[in-house]
């Protein structure tokens, strides 16, 4: 049984149908990329998994139990971390306070500070900026903070929404390197990306989402070699 199992999921906003019978799996320790154009429904899918956007049909199961009626703040407690689109760090809190909020459910202070140190181990630059306000970090550092913050909560599955958005190529490489190392540590990742080339290179498997439907699926290498993917998303037409 997959760790995350999405079946025939439907969701939308008012009259707009954003997800149309979407089915998708993430296995334990797997890195899965979800690629697609703007407005395809990638973010909506992540929001539906984390309970922010209510689903209108179909099912989401995580580790065997249904997620459909779980409240947003409880999803994290089940082991799903979310680094949302636009990073959404707390700009007026320090880096340390941001990370402490990532471990909000951890009440043991000693363990929390160990978890924070561990997350900073992945991004040493955060360790140097602990007392700086989140809003004063560079875009790349904010993205690292968003990922580290989600990791402090020890997720089994991490939802990453456009981590490369607006970052310099060198920083993107650094962020993707860390993302790749997560699955080696047993954390499953569902990665939403517009940077399809980099995402597919990294991913074990991938899905292509087009206007609310999954149109293609396969291993990262298969998709990267697929004619249609190359034409539409890799800019080789």
């Amino acid at each position: 049984m997959p760790l995350l199992e999405v079946r025939d999921l439907e969701a939308g906003y008012g009259p707009i149908r954003a997800l149309d019978h979407v089915s998708l799996d993430v296995e334990d320790g797997e890195l899965v990329a979800l690629i697609g154009a703007n407005g395809a429904g990638k973010t909506t899918l992540l929001m539906a998994i984390s309970g922010v956007v209510p689903s209108r049909g179909g099912s989401i199961r995580f580790a065997g139990s249904p997620l459909t009626a779980v409240k947003p703040h409880e999803v994290m407690r089940l082991g799903i971390g979310h680094a949302p689109e636009g990073r959404r760090i707390f700009p007026r809190l320090t880096v340390r306070e941001n990370l402490e909020l990532g471990g909000f459910t951890q009440t043991d202070r000693a363990r929390l500070s160990r978890d924070i140190d561990e997350a900073c181990g992945l991004f040493p630059v955060l360790g140097e900026r602990m007392d700086q306000l989140g809003g004063t970090l560079s875009g790349g550092e904010q993205q690292m903070l968003a990922i580290a913050r989600a990791l402090v909560g020890h997720p089994r599955l991490l939802l990453l929404d456009e981590p490369s958005l607006g970052l310099a190529p060198l920083v993107v490489a650094k962020v993707f390197e860390v993302i790749a190392s997560l699955s080696a540590r047993g954390i499953s990742v569902l990665l939403v990306e517009q940077n399809a080339r980099a995402a597919l290179k990294l991913a074990h498997r991938g899905y292509v989402l087009e206007t609310g439907r999954i149109t293609l699926t396969g291993s990262g290498a298969e998709l990267a070699a697929d004619r249609r993917v190359r034409d539409a998303y890799l800019g080789e037409g």
Binding site: P72, R88, F90, L93, L101, T105
Partner: peptide, 24 residues
């Protein structure tokens, strides 16, 4: 305190706070 940080987190970004497991 934990509660104090949660107050500020909800003020700053309710959605992000919920993603951290904070019940707004």
């Amino acid at each position: 305190s934990r509660l104090g940080r949660a107050w500020v987190a909800v003020r700053e970004d309710e959605l992000a706070a919920e993603a951290m497991g904070v019940s707004a």
